[in-house]
């Protein structure tokens, strides 16, 4: 029996990870190796913090859920980030790219189940 809470936490981790990627993308255009500039890049810092926040959630998921459930769930993050990219970055995602993303998700499912 798989605890529902664990599934929700995992789904949250994938959403937070995708949000982190969105903010990293927004901050990436002002990336600099100078520490002072790096820390003032709010989008980049927010992205890094969101990514960091998703890590303990993922670790919890991997601990509580069977790998055959946890890994396929984590691959959902690529679907969320594509939806976020379309909504907030105006990226045009045509059928080919969606098929590619779904093949990647399918591959992760096949490896882990």
């Amino acid at each position: 029996m798989i605890p529902l809470v664990a599934l929700l936490v995992t789904a949250m981790a994938t959403a937070i990870g995708a949000l982190g990627a969105l903010f990293l993308k927004r901050g990436a255009h002002h990336f600099s190796f100078r520490p002072a500039k790096l820390l003032r890049n709010r989008q980049l810092v927010a992205g890094a913090l969101l990514y960091a926040a998703s890590v303990p959630l993922y670790l919890y998921a991997l601990k509580v859920l069977p790998l055959a459930v946890a890994y396929p769930l984590t691959s959902m993050t690529y679907v969320w980030s594509a939806l976020l990219a379309r909504r907030h970055l105006n990226e045009q995602i045509r059928i080919g790219r969606w098929c590619g993303i779904l093949l990647i998700v399918a591959g992760i499912v096949v490896i882990s189940v």
Binding site: G96, R97, C99, G100, I101, L102, L103, I104, V105, A106, G107, I108, V109, V110, I111, S112
Partner: peptide, 14 residues
């Protein structure tokens, strides 16, 4: 099979 699917997906996305 899994990495073949992933590589096909990567090629399509690329």
């Amino acid at each position: 099979c899994g990495i073949a699917l992933i590589m096909a997906g990567v090629a399509l996305v690329g």
